[in-house]
């Protein structure tokens, strides 16, 4: 899948949002979370989304991952019309196309780290049964957690859990990673480790969309999108890439 996408590199956006509107109905009335978002992310780009609480960052990420439905507009990711897919199509598509990383890691608490990384492979069937443990170990090695492969998530630190979450996100070798506040619960040293992993992944050709509150981190990302009250108020790029 990644190879197919590389052929259209630089010509077609890998993530395309057009006229995206999301309104929530709450006890206090209607709340517009996104008010007409237009955005295109090219393959291999590293994009950071910043903004204050309630600006619509997480809603935007949920639209891209298909975990929430838009009230209006188009969400096209890796050539698929996300807004038009039903739940099961979305699950398989998501497992193969996107790696999602959350602030609170969202690991399966009762599975070992190895099984956590193997689970997406089990669901999506892209790897043979014999290959998947080897690949999972390789991914754990890449995030320097190979030695902890058979431990439960509760026995390792938050930073280590987030690295496992990244390994899991990469299990099916998706072209896109979406990270919602991935460093939000980590200290600055650990956050830096995670950021370095992201940079390496972008170098290897992955597209990353990351939501963060951390302005210092955001400044080091090549493309920065600022949201306020559900609207993109700035979209800045610089030629210098990270680090």
């Amino acid at each position: 899948m990644a190879a197919q996408l590389e052929s259209s590199h630089d010509t077609v956006p890998i993530i395309e949002l057009r006229g995206l509107v999301k309104t929530y109905k709450t006890g206090a009335g209607e709340f517009p979370a996104l008010r007409g978002i237009d955005l295109a992310v090219m393959p291999g780009e590293f994009v950071v989304v910043v903004g204050k609480s309630g600006a619509g960052k997480t809603t935007l990420v949920n639209m891209i991952t298909g975990t929430d439905r838009p009230s209006a507009g188009v969400v096209r990711v890796a050539g698929a019309d996300v807004h038009a897919m039903h739940e099961d199509q979305l699950a398989l598509w998501r497992g193969r196309t996107l790696g999602v990383i959350y602030q609170n890691f969202q690991l399966m608490p009762t599975l070992s780290l190895l099984n956590n990384v193997m689970l997406p492979m089990d669901f999506c069937g892209l790897w043979r049964r014999r290959e998947s443990p080897l690949r999972a170990l390789e991914l754990l090695r890449a995030v320097e957690l190979e030695d902890h492969a058979f431990k439960l998530p509760s026995t390792i630190s938050g930073g280590q859990q987030q690295r496992v979450a990244i390994a899991r996100a990469l299990a099916n070798d998706p072209p896109i990673l979406v990270a919602d506040e991935p460093t939000g619960r980590l200290d600055s040293v650990t956050a830096e480790t995670i950021f370095q992993i992201f940079l390496r992944l972008v170098e290897s050709g992955k597209t990353i969309v990351m939501v963060t509150h951390d302005e210092n981190l955001a400044r080091r990302v090549p493309r920065r999108i600022r949201l306020a009250d559900g609207r993109i108020v700035s979209d800045s790029r610089d030629q210098r890439g990270g680090g």
């Binding site: 699950a91 497992g95 399966m108 899991r168």
Partner: peptide
């Protein structure tokens, strides 16, 4: 919550 995680990482309903 675990059901949600499984759906995020590619688990289909029947799985």
């Amino acid at each position: 919550q675990q059901i949600g995680i499984m759906k995020i990482i590619g688990g289909r309903s029947r799985q």
